[in-house]
Amino acid sequence: MALAKKGSRRIVVDGVEYRWRVSRKHWCCSYDGVTLGYRVEDASSPGTTLVVETGRPAVFEPSLAPGELVLPREVAAGIRAALSDGWTPRSDGSPFKLHLSAV
Rank of each mutant, 00 (worst) to 15 (best):
A82N: 02
E53F: 03
R73L: 15
V34W: 10
S30Y: 03
A58T: 12
A43G: 07
T35M: 08
Y31F: 12
A76N: 10
R21L: 14
T35A: 06
R39N: 14
W20S: 02
R80T: 00
A76M: 03
L36I: 13
Y18F: 14
E74R: 04
V51K: 09
G47C: 14
R39V: 13
V40A: 05
R24A: 02
L50P: 06
R80G: 00
L83G: 00
A82C: 00
E68D: 11
T49E: 09
W20T: 06
S44W: 04
S45I: 15
G37I: 04
A77K: 08
S30R: 06
P46L: 04
V16Y: 04
L36E: 13
H26M: 08
G78P: 12
P57D: 13
V51N: 07
A82Q: 01
R73S: 12
Y38N: 13
V59S: 09
T48Q: 02
E61F: 00
V40Q: 09
V34L: 11
V16A: 08
Y18V: 01
Y38D: 09
H26R: 11
G55L: 09
L64T: 03
F60K: 15
R39M: 10
E53G: 13
G67Y: 06
R80A: 00
T48A: 02
L83E: 12
Y38G: 14
P66K: 01
E61V: 03
V16M: 00
E41K: 11
S63L: 04
T49I: 14
V22D: 01
Y18W: 06
E17G: 00
G37Q: 05
V52A: 10
H26T: 02
D42H: 13
E53Q: 08
G15C: 12
E53S: 14
L64R: 12
V75H: 01
G37E: 05
H26D: 11
P57C: 04
S63N: 10
V40I: 09
F60E: 15
E68P: 09
T35H: 13
